[in-house]
Computed example of a mutant assay.
Amino acid sequence: MDSIRALRCFVRAVELGSLSAVAREEGSTQPTVSKLMAALERELGVRLLERSTTSLQATPQGARFYQRALGVLSEYQGAVAEARGENETPAGLIRVNAPAAFGQFRLNALLAAFLARYPQVDIELILDDRMVDLVKEGVDIAVRQGRELPPDAVARVAGVSPRQLVAAPAYLRERGTPRRPQDLTHFEYIRFAWLADGDLLTLHRGARSETIATHGRYRVNHALAIRDSLAAGGGIGLCPLWLVQDLLDSGALVTVLPQWHGQPQPLHLLSPTRRYQPLRARLLLDYLAAQIVRLPGYNAT
């Protein structure tokens, strides 16, 4: 029996809850993976997995063995990397998950440059605004904006984007310009559709804070659509500068109430809580951390 392969398949079976899913990852078949798990259980003399027609989960002994197996695989992968030395060529697949708007607007170009630099690396980019389970879905790197992060991931802050109120000059010429935060109640406010605070907007100026009940007839669940609507003169919106800095530089948008701002939006690079990462993933993490802070609208942490 290939013990390392058996450990790897067992770990992924626990994480994915499916031998068929493990087989797809391995490029194998479900019966082959099932036989490998049965052989591992015979060798250990304990039942590691409870199988039913609809689910698969670790037994109590299997759950304890899973934690030790993670460490064994990590040590093995680290030893392989060390044996190969510093001249190892990065190769293989990196699975990346990112928010849809940031991925489309900024991340695509960064990943294209990385692929050009490392011709033996493949990248699978999944654009998804939900918070994914990195381990269960086999994600190597997740890009996440905001402060709510999963507890079971290693987070690295790559940059922080200030958030300002912006509008098109034509909209302000037609409707006037707010002079204080409470004036915003008289303007069309364009916002993200699924905000926890709904129409309530909190702005900060030094130690002062103001919360305003905004009004807007247009709400949308995609940041690029908000950007386009603001540039077209649809109203006023609070945007992270990574999304609109180029429009501010060109004059297509201007800041509104420039002394007031929203809570800055940090961008995190997440990786699974494993002690070892393949060289290709480590290189991409370092590359993204170096490049994102250079993007328009980002400040260093």
Rank of each mutant, 00 (worst) to 15 (best):
residue 3 S to T: 14
residue 5 R to D: 04
residue 7 L to Y: 10
residue 9 C to R: 14
residue 14 V to A: 05
residue 14 V to R: 02
residue 19 L to D: 01
residue 24 R to F: 07
residue 24 R to A: 13
residue 26 E to D: 04
residue 26 E to K: 05
residue 27 G to Y: 12
residue 28 S to N: 06
residue 29 T to H: 07
residue 30 Q to D: 11
residue 31 P to L: 05
residue 33 V to C: 02
residue 33 V to R: 02
residue 39 A to K: 12
residue 39 A to L: 11
residue 41 E to V: 06
residue 41 E to Y: 08
residue 43 E to H: 13
residue 45 G to T: 08
residue 47 R to G: 12
residue 49 L to E: 12
residue 49 L to P: 13
residue 51 R to L: 00
residue 54 T to R: 11
residue 55 S to K: 11
residue 64 R to Y: 03
residue 66 Y to K: 08
residue 69 A to R: 11
residue 72 V to P: 09
residue 74 S to N: 15
residue 75 E to H: 14
residue 75 E to G: 11
residue 78 G to N: 11
residue 80 V to T: 05
residue 81 A to D: 09
residue 81 A to R: 04
residue 83 A to M: 12
residue 83 A to W: 10
residue 88 E to H: 06
residue 90 P to T: 12
residue 92 G to Y: 05
residue 95 R to D: 01
residue 95 R to S: 06
residue 99 P to G: 15
residue 102 F to C: 08
residue 105 F to K: 15
residue 109 A to T: 14
residue 111 L to C: 08
residue 113 A to L: 14
residue 115 L to D: 10
residue 128 D to F: 04
residue 128 D to R: 06
residue 131 M to K: 07
residue 135 V to M: 03
residue 137 E to R: 08
residue 138 G to I: 03
residue 141 I to W: 11
residue 141 I to F: 09
residue 142 A to R: 02
residue 142 A to G: 11
residue 146 G to A: 02
residue 148 E to S: 08
residue 151 P to Y: 00
residue 155 A to L: 06
residue 161 S to R: 00
residue 165 L to H: 01
residue 165 L to K: 01
residue 165 L to Y: 01
residue 166 V to N: 15
residue 167 A to G: 09
residue 169 P to L: 03
residue 171 Y to T: 09
residue 172 L to T: 01
residue 172 L to A: 00
residue 174 E to D: 13
residue 174 E to C: 08
residue 177 T to A: 00
residue 179 R to S: 10
residue 185 T to H: 11
residue 189 Y to W: 14
residue 189 Y to G: 08
residue 192 F to K: 08
residue 193 A to D: 08
residue 193 A to V: 14
residue 196 A to Y: 10
residue 199 D to N: 10
residue 200 L to R: 15
residue 202 T to A: 01
residue 203 L to K: 10
residue 212 I to Y: 06
residue 213 A to T: 13
residue 214 T to R: 12
residue 216 G to E: 05
residue 216 G to F: 03
residue 218 Y to K: 11
residue 220 V to D: 15
residue 223 A to F: 08
residue 228 D to W: 02
residue 229 S to W: 06
residue 234 G to C: 04
residue 235 G to Y: 13
residue 236 I to D: 10
residue 245 Q to G: 04
residue 247 L to A: 14
residue 247 L to K: 14
residue 248 L to K: 13
residue 249 D to K: 01
residue 255 T to I: 03
residue 258 P to N: 02
residue 262 G to Y: 05
residue 263 Q to F: 02
residue 264 P to C: 04
residue 265 Q to I: 00
residue 266 P to I: 04
residue 268 H to Q: 05
residue 270 L to C: 06
residue 270 L to P: 09
residue 271 S to K: 12
residue 277 Q to A: 09
residue 278 P to Q: 00
residue 279 L to C: 10
residue 282 R to I: 00
residue 284 L to Y: 02
residue 284 L to N: 03
residue 286 D to I: 03
residue 286 D to F: 01
residue 290 A to F: 05
residue 299 N to P: 01
residue 300 A to V: 08
